[in-house]
Design a protein around this nucleic acid. Structure first.
Lengths: 349, 349
DNA sequence: ATGAAAGCGCTAACAG
DNA sequence: CTGTTAGCGCTTTCAT
């Protein structure tokens, strides 16, 4: 049975009281140098570590913060997590990661679990399925600090970090248009995610800016954020089978982008439909993908860093914070340079 | 300030003692139905949740288990984590994920942190950098249950889950040989990882089985497990610049595989060297990669499940466990079907 | 300079 | 059936 040494053990071994030991370990001024050294040396020797559970109970804080994302197997989120950790560790906070798998139920359970475990604050990116936000609202009202990033929720007044989704979507769509495509479909995320209408809007704006009509049918939603591959496949199939078949697709997210390419590879081997793809993605292997894709890259690491800094500010602020800010970062667009080249290849196959 | 309701609040509100409330909430037989209903209804109404920190302190266990992997942005590990979670949640355990980023220092800090946070057990996959395992050994001796998976360590006697690395490496190498390649390089992981010599051994065995010579120079190690892309690039460059240039590469891990392809894309555009690649990978987009790759797939999800089951067994066992087992799972090899087809394409470009 | 005691939220042994 | 009390590990008044 695993039983770590306690302050009591030290006290007994050294013939002191627990309070003296406690104070000595915290280098209190009211303890003599001799006693301090005695206690500290002994603690060192037996590798004493204070029990953070006891500390948490006492201080009503845990120096840990909870992160809830849909999944870690997603470049955008894993990069954001790395950003979060980079700051959190430096400031003495531990990061507890939790996955919603884009399920409302899982999100609610995990949020509750994290709150129960006395995290000092929460970093949240909403699940694709969630419409009812009362689980978060309740905690927020009770005063649990939280910061939203990427997939935010309007109704809760707190700090938020997002990217300029409209602009990112505009640039991607614009690129496709400038490439010469006129019938551009849009593979969209779950409708109630904050990012979905924003990216749709950017897409629409680009169409309008270049005098292209907006076709409602060209927009295909994936209600589970693409975590269920079949829904992406269905959406892509629908796009390919449209009477007025699109010649390009603008894809709204990382997971959808890879799902879309997989489906295309299946239905459209060798890119016989000559489709051009542009989408949001932070994948490390994006440049290796075939069919190739132009992509909107989000500063995920930086978003994570900013979010955790905001959260820590909230946690450590003495007076209740009343002014909340929403940081909007820029995305970066990477055209797929060798598009034509590869198209020639694949057409030949 | 976030202040959840306690059993005391309920007791006061209802004019009962805390113990009565406690018992009522746990549906104890010694409490009258009326009181139970009263208490439960009220608890429900004010959304009372027991404080798990207090429970942990009392019961000396947290119902949480710590997982330490090199990084979550890696298909193999994120799949393993999903396997771990699938069982853990069902059995009432919370999973705390921690990344070593293949750094010894980070691993040691995180392991200590998790142990301090009173996780009931540890699921460990070693970092590429680690040679000194005393940080784990100490905790193991103190009785903290731990199970190793994938990247294990011989010296610590406990349950382990691995795959048949030798066989997996053999099959991949054999495939390359049967394809007609005779000069097969090996892009290897950090030398002191348990998987490294095993996969090297399988590679050697295949060479031997088919009467090919083993060339020491053909083996290039990546001491940071490929987390630093440059080391992969350097290794690939060396392979490409060898006097007796290899015609194929067997790659030892997921991260190395994508790194290798990226480097090849850079140094060897259009696969002018006509290199055939086979490697360990669990990437979801493996089939979309270009250059294409044959791959050894590990049952990561299942490994996670088995590992957590073993750990929970260790945690919940009353008598100290003396018999430890090492589960060895089979990998699955997926030849790159359209290798020739794509080769033709790329040669043409 | 040190110790005794209370308390963080909860459970359980002990008393009625 | 319900209440009182002690204790999990630690810090922190309050005494001495």
């Amino acid at each position: 049975m695993y039983k770590p040494t306690t302050i009591k053990d030290i006290a007994k071994a050294l013939g002191l009281s627990t309070s003296t030991v406690s104070r000595a370990l915290r280098d209190s001024y009211e303890i003599s140098e001799d006693t301090k050294r005695l206690v500290m040396d002994y603690a060192e020797k037996i590798n004493y570590k204070p029990n953070p559970i006891a500390l948490s109970l006492k201080e009503r804080r845990s120096y840990s913060i909870g992160v809830i994302v849909c999944e870690v197997a997603n470049s955008f989120f894993s990069q954001a997590i790395n950003g979060i950790e980079s700051i959190a560790y430096k400031k003495g906070y531990h990061v507890i990661i939790s996955q919603s798998h884009d399920s409302y139920e899982r999100e609610a359970i995990n949020v509750q679990h994290l709150a129960n475990r006395s995290v000092d604050g929460l970093l949240v990116s909403m699940s694709a399925e969630t419409t009812d936000i009362s689980h978060l609202q309740r905690l927020h009202e009770q005063g649990l600090p939280m910061v939203f990033f990427d997939r935010i929720v309007e109704e809760i007044q707190t700090h938020k970090v997002i990217v300029n989704n409209k602009k990112g979507a505009f640039e991607a769509t614009e690129y496709l248009i400038k490439e010469g495509q006129t019938k551009i479909a849009h593979l969209a995320n779950a409708p109630h995610l904050s990012i979905t209408p924003e990216r749709l809007e950017g897409y629409k704006m680009a169409l309008q800016a270049y005098g292209l009509p907006f076709n409602e049918d060209y927009v295909q939603y994936c209600h589970h954020g693409g975590l269920i591959y079949e829904e992406v496949e269905d959406a892509v199939k629908k796009i390919l089978q449209m009477p007025d078949k699109p010649d390009a697709i603008f894809v709204a997210s990382d997971r959808l982008s890879t799902g879309c390419l997989t489906a295309l590879r299946k239905f459209n081997p060798g890119n016989i439909h000559n489709l051009s793809i542009a989408g949001f993605s932070n994948s490390a292997v994006i440049n290796l993908l075939q069919p190739s894709i132009s992509y909107v890259h989000q500063p995920a690491f930086e978003m994570g860093q900013i979010a955790i800094e905001m959260l820590i500010q909230l946690i450590e602020s003495n007076k209740p914070v009343k002014e909340f800010i929403t940081r909007v970062l820029d995305t970066k667009f990477f055209p797929n340079k060798d598009l034509t080249e590869i198209k020639v290849d694949t057409i030949g196959s």
